[in-house]
Design a protein around this nucleic acid. Structure first.
Lengths: 360, 360
DNA sequence: CCTAGGATTGAGACCGGACTCACATCGATT
DNA sequence: AATCGATGTGAGTCCGGTCTCAATCCTAGG
């Protein structure tokens, strides 16, 4: 009774028009729901389309509307729940507005990011959301901006680029949490990040990531305000895989003048740090205090539950997508970027250090 | 010195051709690197393209090659690290072969999945990877198959659909781990899943998800082999958000005839189950044994570390992408789907139940 | 010196929709 | 009955590439 559906070529408006005995233009109008179409024609065309199982070719449609209803999202690592959640916020919002998402993972490599941006531009996405690997190397982002296609940055800022940016106030929360540690009695506070740099950290070093840079500044301000000096020797960058993080952790805790508190720059790092601490048979917070960025659910399950810095990641994804789509649709942006606030959630991993050595 | 780059309209082959003083056809050939082009023309065209900062419009290209070099990926929840990792395997592999990924999240809703598939088909993706929400409602998948576009299933099977499927042998691992619990002395073994069904579980009930269905079968076989009966009253489906999972956990542990071991169907569920157990002030494994699917890194950090069923999720993502791309490129598939094996990783969350009541 | 055959080249069709424009149609206005 | 504005309608162009095909160029063989 029903015709064989699996034709080689796709059904096109022309096919539908022929079946409905009308011109291609009329069929297109009826199908696309635009222009003037008589009821008679509309009914016939729709029936024919149904019968033939017609599906519009979005590629062709995009080509002459100039809109692809697709946004490109470039993140460092979707495997990281931080980005997973942000991506979820983005895709949920995009879907709600009828947009699709092309996702590209850069592995935090600027080269890959440059490629990603180029590819997305070539695919004529309507806009881009990028979590830039570097806040310094931003030529490719500038090119997006100049191409006229909307761009929204997520998580990290790019100084000098006049682009809507969705990020939390890192300097502030870093300051506050460092102050929290200092007032608990800590002086030897370590900070571990995977940010890649050419050499080891030194005071005043330029940091490619605005996120890390801001955190450093916040720490510094907290120490200065307390009349103390930042323990630069405990700021450890270039952490890599789990093993290298554990190695760094061991070094920090087994040196003559060990760290009494460790701040992990994200949840993935924190995981390995905690594991290393456990392997050393040290306990948190008796032997060492611990604090990490990212409020992953599992931080409530460890003994003790971990004190973390929670960021409204999902909401930030939503905000980024909303801002982007607003721009794509030509609506104006609010003048200022809304500031998202991170929150220090005190659970049980911070206590006074074993032996308080108030230097001076 | 340099011309103003930010033109309104994009630069096209026609523009390049004009600048290079050759025909559009020749410019296209030089740019697309096909057909016969003299060195002279090639050099001029490439120089002009460089000068004008020409970038091909992939949409237009896709339209008449029929290939979009894009694959669609439909998953239930990227926020779930399980899918995050699988997605990572897919995107890594896709990138390596020059493919892009359009990601759509369905929230495990079949309706959303149907839409997703339709949208991706309309966008003329070269192929699809789907982690189907239901193993029963698969009309939309059948339609993909019939449309001639390659399709690969991930995680869950769809009986009756002759499609390459990348999944682990759930029946086997479920049987083995249940046997492990039984031999540790457990009889009251609970199983919690978020699978939605119309009513509560009963023996022989048809389960929409092949994954859950296979696990049930494996459990059943283990019990039967041990000459025991499956405690159907402890199989709890329709778990939802964290709160509902906790509620179910409490019910299981506070009933007159409580569960002595709980199996969580995935890492997200496991998280809430463990949290609920902690909130009840019960300890694992003294008061209740615990086992969960998904070997998330944090399971090593809890006290005790959790016994889990590890699945090679990343590799499965890679395999799915490779299989799909192989089909897209017209190469034949190996006859059989390679079987991925899950592995029971015994850490510390399973022990003998408090009071062994060997019913008989 | 003439010519066959491969290398080049440009004109134009085509992919599948959206959209412009000129040309009906038709009821309503006066 | 002539006129006018509001639909309806179909032919054909365009988007930005790819690709076919016939015409033109060259160069070596005869």
């Amino acid at each position: 009774m029903n015709s064989d559906a699996s034709r080689r070529r796709d059904v096109t408006v022309a096919d539908v028009a022929r079946a409905a005995q009308v011109s291609k233009a009329q069929a297109a109008r009826a199908l696309g729901n635009y222009g003037a179409v008589s009821d008679d024609v509309r009914v016939r065309v729709l029936a024919a389309a149904e019968e033939l199982d017609y599906r519009p070719n979005e590629l062709a449609r995009s080509m002459n509307t100039g809109k692809s209803h697709t946004i490109g999202v470039v993140v460092g690592d979707i495997e990281n729940p931080h980005f997973g959640l942000a991506t979820r916020g983005i895709t949920d919002t995009a879907k709600r507005s009828g947009f699709n998402v092309i996702l590209i993972n850069t592995d935090e490599d600027t080269g890959a990011e440059i490629d990603a941006v180029r590819v997305l531009l070539d695919k004529r996405v309507d806009g881009l959301i990028v979590a830039p690997a570097s806040s310094v190397e931003t030529q490719h982002l500038r090119r997006v901006y100049e191409s006229g296609r909307p761009l929204v940055l997520l998580d990290r800022k790019a100084p000098g680029l006049d682009v809507h940016t969705v990020a939390v106030d890192m300097e502030g929360i870093s300051h506050d949490s460092t102050t929290y540690l200092i007032s608990a009695g800590h002086r030897r506070i370590a900070f571990i990040s995977t940010l890649k740099t050419v050499g080891p950290y030194w005071d005043g070093m330029q940091l490619d990531s605005s996120q890390i840079s801001d955190r450093r500044d916040g720490m510094k301000r907290a120490f200065v305000e307390a009349g103390l000096e930042v323990p630069d020797d405990l700021i450890r960058l270039n952490a890599g895989d789990a093993e290298s993080i554990k190695k760094i952790t061991r070094e920090l805790l087994q040196r003559p003048d060990p760290a009494t508190a460790i701040i992990a720059s994200d949840g993935l790092i924190g995981l390995s740090v905690v594991e290393a601490i456990q392997e050393l048979d040290l306990s948190i917070p008796q032997d060492v205090s611990f604090l990490m960025y990212d409020d992953f659910a599992w931080t409530r399950l460890t003994t003790p539950p971990l004190t973390v810095i929670a960021q409204p990641v999902y909401d930030m994804g939503v905000a980024a997508a909303e801002a982007l789509i607003r721009q794509v649709e030509g609506r104006k942006m609010p003048a200022a970027d809304p500031a998202f606030m991170a929150e220090l959630i005190r659970r049980g991993s911070v206590a006074a250090p074993k032996a308080i050595d108030v230097g001076h």
